[in-house]
Amino acid sequence: MTGTRAAGPEPVWTPARLAGIFMAVACAFGLGTLVLKFFGVLRVFPGAAVLAVLIGLVVLAIGYALIRRLTPVRSPPRDPSLVAVAWGATAASGCALVANSGLMGIWSKTTSLEFAEDWRAALTAPLNEELLKGAGVALLAVLAPRALRGPMDGMAYGALTGLGFQMMENVTYALNQQITTGGAGEVAAVVQVLVVRVGLTGPGSHWAMSAVAGAGIGYLAARGVRGLPQAVPLVIAAMAMHWLFDAPLMDSAAGVAAKTAINFAAVVALYAAQRWGFMARARQLLHQDVAAGRLPADEAAAVPSRRQRRGILLKTPEGPEREAMVERQRDALERVHEQAADACTMPRA
């Protein structure tokens, strides 16, 4: 995923352009698949559909803001963030609908009905869905290489991809619930599904799994194939988290809450470790900037914090001095993001 720019005119079919085209086609295919699959339910139960989408969008907006705000130093740029959400909500969701149906059918046809009933979800969704969501993060790393440079970025875009997927899955479950409740009580059926899937399982669901897999993709973005020793275990860990969620174990409400807590704890632990590494490397780089005279010490101290950056700017009188400070902050942020992206690769002293 890392590469060098060749001299001379840029070829027409660049990897970024191909990635963009494939992503656009896959998103259109996924959205079309979803609409075709649920068109009948949308037509007959429009109230439930509108309610499910509205609640989904509110949850999505909150999750989107939280994930971007929790990314250290600066939020991921808006455009790639929206592409990640769109991939999860359309391409990954629609393709997963087709792929899951196929693999679940295989389990149903080749094992006993009882075994398939219990295990087919756990033997299908972790493989298909984590790979489909992860493929989007990998493509995004090619499409927007400056935005996705390491595991911390990968976590953010993975979480956003998973969030989009989760939102769409919640909507489709709410629509399916219209059928399984016998079509009576549209609103109650939607609320019932969303309370469980947002309130109970939401904190440990797709956003968390994809954040872990996304960190793995981030290692590949930073190191190429040398990132495989980190990437493979992280993608497998995401699948394991998903398997735990879908396995017919601990099926009581307390058990489901425990599964959610385990997944949430796993992603928080990974986030804390990545954030610690990223911030340590960022401070080291800023210290070097101060030593080299590129940045005053008080400005360097403010760079890692959004609030402190804003504070020190506001204390500076408007005019050329503030503009120069804005420029220095922008350069420092770019340097930090570029060189601290792979936090485990510390610079030589």
């Binding site: 990897p15 191909l18 896959a26 393709c95 493509l139």
Partner: peptide
């Protein structure tokens, strides 16, 4: 380019 092909092939 290899990354695009691998990701697309997986999908």
């Amino acid at each position: 380019m290899r990354a695009v092909l691998i990701a697309a092939a997986v999908v």
